[in-house]
Design a protein around this nucleic acid. Sequence first.
DNA 1: TTGACGTGTTCACTATAGGAAACAGAGTTT
DNA 2: AAACTCTGTTTCCTATAGTGAACACGTCAA
Lengths: 210, 210
Amino acid sequence: MSANTDQQAALRIASGRKPFVEPLRLGERLKEIRLANQWTLEDVSQRTGLARSTLSKIENDQISPTFTAVQKLINGLNIDLPQLLTPPKVQPRTMGRRDLTRRGEGQLHPTPTYEHELLSCELAQKRMIPFKTIVRARSFDEFSEWVRHDGEEFLMVLEGEICLYTEFYEPLQLSRGDSIYFDSDMGHALVSLSEDDAVVLSVCTRGDTA
Amino acid sequence: MSANTDQQAALRIASGRKPFVEPLRLGERLKEIRLANQWTLEDVSQRTGLARSTLSKIENDQISPTFTAVQKLINGLNIDLPQLLTPPKVQPRTMGRRDLTRRGEGQLHPTPTYEHELLSCELAQKRMIPFKTIVRARSFDEFSEWVRHDGEEFLMVLEGEICLYTEFYEPLQLSRGDSIYFDSDMGHALVSLSEDDAVVLSVCTRGDTA
DNA sequence: TTGACGTGTTCACTATAGGAAACAGAGTTT
DNA sequence: AAACTCTGTTTCCTATAGTGAACACGTCAA
């Protein structure tokens, strides 16, 4: 028991407790919106129902507003959340971001059936989520439920051989180099057929329509 | 308080927003996302750094999470806010389309520098465009101009070794298994370094958002 | 059966967000 | 000049979000 709690504590310390908080300056953004509309703190207070002092603290990043407070802001100021979260500066096109991931250097996310390696996790705002997966499962029974998530998924077999089970189709056998594109809200599950664990590369779309 | 209240009102009406208030059961939504990924509260706790108990209360709408907490959720679960705020209401999607491409069965598009093989071209309406490319070019000089297109691109080297030239960065050498994610409106070009032509898998986002 | 897990929930306590009121400036008016 | 009015800030105090531990409930293995 103690060994386990130690392990859990170690994990928590290792994973959580990020030394830095996201630099998303929404206080700055709020102030920008307020001044752009020539509103005073009192105006905003009456519109949102939040105290003047609270608004001041939010603008100066002295407190982190509750989600209900954020909702009051959204409703009261007639803005929507993406607008509030848009970085204070206009986003120039051609940002030219990039995120390199050397072989095996991705972020690991093991599960009983899959062993995921997230591939470009430095970049926060991206439209696709690429990851490499080692398929540990050998039988469909190992899945308690369909895997499903919003959006679409592209998948290519890098090594080994797999069987792709889907909700609406017959199981499909895929060999190295074969690829498939499908709606990922359709239930799906992968199983290794080869002796060694199969490896697949997946790219999922991220939910958009802000 | 000024004489331009009319103007303000006019602006507000012009930019006119929805009169409806969003119930925004984000607890429900969080639980949905968690279960869809087959995560336990402990998993989410380790990913986000939030306590198991806190997550439980958020899911059951017993507390309204702080904005920093929401950010931890976003970062830890690799989702973005719209996705978290999407009402858990009906998902009429579940079209369950799919498009299989066996190895070497893609649609060929040869150019002097690249030899593209489009991978899932049966499906018309899709958010990503996957293709396999044989890199014939051996020198940056063979490109008359930067390659650039709207959106983002993910790329993994399947065989051989390449050099990725980009508009804003130093050339980057990539070996088999290495991958990179970048804004594709930044000029880019690939060159084979290995004796045999290198082969890469690319996935591009498609332009607009519905 | 027992005990050792692992799940989600609830409890008691600490940390912190939110609100009323006091504060400190900058203009205006007298 | 003082007195008034509006601005944004700071100071308490309370309400509540966040945490760790204990809990209740399952599953699994001996």
